[in-house]
Design a protein around this nucleic acid. Structure first.
Lengths: 238, 238
DNA sequence: TATTGTTATATCTATTTTGCTTATAAGGTG
DNA sequence: CACCTTATAAGCAAAATAGATATAACAATA
């Protein structure tokens, strides 16, 4: 019994990829490290899994502690387990990602000045995959550990899920225009879309309810505001 | 430094979902447990991750030790981390899956009589998801731990990847007929397909090379044998 | 109040994709 | 050599999609 207590065990961490839209681009929440290794460098927020909490609980705890986010849809991404990925020793990282409207990050940014919402730079196209980097104050900034790989894999996963799930809506406020939705799709997929075709395709899904309201503060003809009608089919399970 | 050594750590295991086709059905390799907990019951083959091997290395080691399989395409599935998933204590399981033609399992079955290739029973349809069980000698058999959840999630993942990747070919020998390929697709998706449309769709991908050879031992008109032409676009990275 | 600039929305057509049917070909078997 | 069954090819209608064009709606300006 408990034979596995005889062995050395890897440490298990959770890292989070928290994304949002800023100016028609995908952005990610990063945190400046204040300890070695990689002190002073930017990294994804994360922390170690406690012995008495599940992986999902750990992810939610870190989500709350680091980004002050609650009630956000969160999903496991991948588990990174290379030997040399952490200079301190053997650390396995179970990564999760979440998508939220920008408004949701206001509290965290006000609370903590080591947080930053950085635009993402993706150097590859649809099927390839590969790492992705971030931009800090106009200049490329290297992420600590293997976090650029993690970021890249998140993009790849998002691109895969974009077409058959409702992830795009997680980045938008409750009420949004069809143009907003198209901008999100284009930011994730990385390629422009045909407007009438996109609009028709979205309306045909049956996911959208027209509210009758229109956007305000528009210089030109204001677009109608829509909202998701069907909260039932959530993305549980994986 | 090494502050994470102060905490109790979960054990980290790898479990494998090794699938193949038998009589037009998806099957999975299971192993009878000879120790508590769940002694005598069927489970997915697995083992603990050593401190000096990466997750991928651990998966390949277990693949080789338990199923005698080499040169098989393998992919990480999901990491299960509920508190009570193992009665012995805190164990996190990083799961991988692999698909191989039935011929690849011959050696393992001859070597080890605690292995069994079991037909999979899927009780849900396309989008839902849920656990999946196995059949042993005609009767339903419960899998140990949360392995029915793991199996179910593998099916869900396969169904998602079926349309835009080449996973189906992993279940076939080097040379196969278009009918063989259709049977694989139907077994994974769980629904019948239109024959001429499927054939056209497959040929249009440009993935297939006609060999000029035909199947033998056919009672009626023998079908042409095809093979994958493009090994380049492998499913690396995720 | 009419005009203009810009975007939203509706309509229409051509093209591609898909589902299905029908016809023909190619073996084996008796 | 008829015949049974499946493979393959060809054809056609329905559906989905891309693209272009036309019209509508609002704000700002004159």
């Amino acid at each position: 019994m408990k034979m596995f207590d005889d062995y050395d065990k890897p440490a298990v961490a959770v890292d989070l990829v928290l994304m949002t839209m800023v100016d028609a681009r995908l952005n990610v929440l990063i945190q400046r490290r204040n300890a070695e290794p990689f002190a002073g460098q930017w990294a994804l927020p994360g922390g170690f899994v406690q012995i008495n909490e599940s992986l999902d609980d750990a992810a939610h705890r870190i989500l709350k502690e680091k980004a002050r986010l609650k009630n956000v849809w969160i999903e496991q991404l991948y588990t990174f387990g290379a030997l040399e990925r952490d200079p301190r020793g053997r650390v396995i990282s179970v990564t999760y990602f979440a998508l939220a409207p920008t408004s949701a990050f206001a509290i965290a940014k006000a609370d903590k000045d080591d947080l930053y919402i950085a635009p993402i730079e993706i150097a590859w196209s649809d099927e390839t995959g590969g790492p992705a980097s971030v931009v800090y104050e106009g200049k490329p900034a290297a992420l600590a550990f293997d976090h650029e790989r993690i970021l890249g894999m998140t993009i790849k996963r998002l691109r895969g899920k974009l077409h058959y799930t409702k992830i795009a809506f997680s980045l938008l406020p409750t009420k949004f225009t069809l143009r907003d939705l198209q901008i999100v799709h284009e930011a994730i997929s990385g390629s422009p879309l045909n407007k009438p075709a996109f609009r028709r395709r979205m309306l045909d899904t049956g996911w959208l309810n027209a509210t009758g309201e229109r956007e305000t503060a528009s210089a030109f003809r204001p677009a109608e505001l829509y909202q998701l009608n069907d909260k039932s089919t959530s993305n549980k399970g994986e």
